[in-house]
């Protein structure tokens, strides 16, 4: 399987360990990654789409065209990038007047949106193309943890642009975590937003952080030993957010946060340094000690 690897912003520029983990894990899953040279911000859906739709569409289209030129579907590790690119791709494929408008802009750069590729999230590819049974067979080091699974909003919603079993009680990510030997613990308001999206983290950091705090409390009360998420922005919100909460209110959650690709990497037997886990704000040591 070949995919155009869309990096986005948070992963390469704040958590490159997630990028590295993907580059190390992909071969084991028989995924070949092609770099999308010159790609930009997706651009961030909640922010840019709400300011100026035609700019959002044109910049997203420019990214999509890079993958079209490579001739492969896009794979992403961030729900924001996924939501933005998937939605823009759908709009441009189905709405000819918007497509014409965007192509008029891209024409000057010898680019054209053709609508020849799809946008996939990494966990979607693992679940659909590799499947949990095969995944179990690849596990070298079973991970026996109580995990708080954080789906993140834009992996699932809005359903008008994607097919999802359920947005209220989805199971696939829990299955992907449990296939690696862990238990996905139920916790209160599991499907609630992490608080980072829609530009709220930038405009109203206290409100944003308070949402993360509420979720962290619920995760802790459920006995979670770590948080696993497929979204780079949820990852940042919970990892660095715990430091902000400590600084503001003295409350220390100390729950390590792993991106699903890093969690999978550990189960595949990769060293934690090769997965960039040492660069998290909340030390990952409790997880490593229990391996």
């Amino acid at each position: 399987m070949q995919y155009a690897f869309f990096l986005g912003c948070v992963i390469p520029n704040r958590y490159p360990g997630i990028e590295l983990a993907m580059r190390k894990v992909a071969p084991t899953l028989e995924i070949e990654l092609k770099d999308m040279e010159g790609a930009s911000c997706c651009p961030a859906p909640g922010v840019f789409k709400s300011f100026h739709q035609s700019t959002w569409l044109a910049l997203a289209a420019r990214n999509l065209v890079i993958a079209e030129t490579l001739g492969t579907d896009i794979i992403t590790l961030c729900n924001g990038c996924y939501g933005s690119l998937k939605e823009a791709n759908e709009i441009l494929k189905t709405n000819s007047s918007k497509r014409d408008e965007v192509n008029k802009i891209l024409h000057d750069f010898n680019k054209e949106f053709r609508g020849t590729i799809d946008v996939k999230h990494f966990v979607e590819v693992v679940y659909q193309n590799i499947e949990t049974e095969k995944l179990k067979g690849l596990v070298k080091k079973p991970l026996h943890f109580n995990v708080a699974v954080q789906y993140g909003c834009h992996l699932l919603k809005p359903t008008k642009y994607r097919k999802v079993e359920s947005t209220e009680r989805p199971k696939f990510l829990d299955e992907l975590v449990e296939a690696l030997g862990s238990k996905s613990v139920p916790y209160r308001d599991k499907m609630m937003c992490c608080g980072a999206g829609g530009g709220v983290k930038a405009s109203n950091p206290d409100v944003s952080l308070d949402m993360a705090r509420e979720k962290l409390e619920n995760m802790r009360n459920a006995g979670a030993e770590c948080i696993v998420t497929p979204c780079a922005f949820c990852h940042l919100q919970f990892d660095r957010g715990q430091v902000d909460i400590r600084n503001q209110s003295g409350v220390d959650f100390n729950i390590p946060v792993l991106h699903y690709v890093q969690f999978l990497g550990l189960a595949l037997g990769l060293e934690s340094r090769k997965l960039g886990l040492h660069s998290n704000a909340i030390p990952i040591d409790p997880v490593l000690k229990k391996l």
Binding site: E37, S54, T55, L59, I105, D108, F109
Partner: peptide, 30 residues
């Protein structure tokens, strides 16, 4: 330190690509 390129292979590395992004924002009035 992770063995990755210092700047990612995005608009951070490809200046022509960055220029495209900038031109697009000018064209749309963003």
């Amino acid at each position: 330190s992770l063995g990755l390129s210092e700047a990612p292979p995005t608009t951070h590395t490809f200046k022509e690509a960055l220029k495209e992004v900038q031109e697009i924002t000018k064209k749309t009035g963003f």
